[in-house]
Amino acid sequence: MSLLKIDNLSTEVDGKGILNKLNLKIEKGETHVLVGPNASGKSTLLYTLMGYPEYNVTEGKLLFNDEDITDMEIEERTKRGIAGVYQNPPAINVKLSTLLDKISEGKKQFKSIEGLEGLLDRDVNVGYSGGERKLSEVAQVISLDPDFIILDELDAGLDIENLERISQVVKEELSDKTLLIITHRGRALKFFEPDYAHVMMNGEIICSSKDSQKIWKTIEEDGYERCKEC
């Protein structure tokens, strides 16, 4: 039984089709990387997996731990162990410490993460730098203690030092989790050793391989179009 099975999934937003008969299986404990150019549908996959209502599933289904979650509400998916690290989370006039307390409900305290202390009394994502935003996102996800985490553009808006720091936190705190890392830059691949890499274009996965470095090298040298010939 796969932890996550995406079966022939198509979605649309505002009547525009984005994901197109997508298939993907992720086993428990695996790390997958999904790469693709801008507007290929990577973030749509995140929001569809999370259950955002404007992402309308028109075909196919989502199975998580063999349970059909296709029509499940957002918070119910979260309670079943799915969590997302967002690229552009909204600003909220709520202190980060308040939100962490609320979402962790006494499961764990993660205030010891380096750099988090200075954020706890600040409102969530208000005036945050790129690194602070990612740290806040990762801290929230750690507090949720999920089984499966989707990390959207982990390397966006971070300098190399911050990317290394955030990647280290993810590796240390989420080492036993199943990860789907979404990126179009590939810089995050320096810090992770994925079990599988997938290339997405036009809402479809057009190539999958265990050799993520080879895929990224191909993309860097010949561009995403070359992946169509994979």
């Binding site: 969590a83 308040t98 979402i103």
Partner: peptide, 27 residues
């Protein structure tokens, strides 16, 4: 309250009512 904010908080495990209450209390 923006739907983005409510959905974001729901994705952190809060119900819609809990999300709204949290934002209101923060406000």
């Amino acid at each position: 309250i923006s739907e983005d904010v409510v959905n974001y908080l729901r994705s952190r495990g809060l119900s819609e009512d809990e999300a709204i209450d949290l934002v209101v209390n923060g406000f």
